[in-house]
């Protein structure tokens, strides 16, 4: 499997992934998040991409940050998720799953689909409900 994904895909998913990683691992700092993204197979996210994302999330109140001094070093900034961030993450993940299901269903070749699998059933139902609202 490749380790470098199209930039536009990364752009679409990175805020969600960062929020999820911060929620899972508690207060953490930028470099550690970059490592976890790489370990997750999401590719090598440069600092130039990551820190502006962290800044945006903080501006919108989804993360909060705190500087702690390091011994001799330049210190580090710890970020943690806020309640607002948790809510936003839950909401966006639900929608994202729907979207991914719809995309998968759209691109799947019906002749080639493995027998009995109907991956689009639930997402389509959700989408219909959303449209009716």
């Amino acid at each position: 499997m490749t380790d470098q994904w199209p930039q536009s895909w990364t752009r679409a998913a990175i805020e969600m992934c960062v929020l999820a990683l911060v929620r899972q691992h508690g207060p953490t700092h930028g470099y550690e998040i970059a490592q976890r993204l790489r370990d997750a197979g999401l590719g090598d996210i440069k600092g130039g991409t990551l820190y502006p994302v962290l800044g945006r999330l903080e501006q919108r109140g989804r993360l909060r940050s705190e500087w702690i001094s390091g011994e001799g070093g330049p210190g580090r900034k710890l970020v943690s998720i806020t309640d607002e961030g948790r809510r936003a993450l839950d909401a966006v993940v639900a929608e994202w799953k729907t979207w991914v299901g719809l995309v998968a269903a759209t691109v799947e070749d019906p002749d080639n689909a493995s027998g009995g699998q109907q991956p689009c059933e639930a997402p389509q139902a959700t989408a219909r409900r959303r449209r009716e609202q």
Partner: peptide, 9 residues
């Protein structure tokens, strides 16, 4: 400060 911390690490 973030740039400095990141490259230091």
């Amino acid at each position: 400060a973030e740039v400095e911390a990141h490259v230091a690490e």
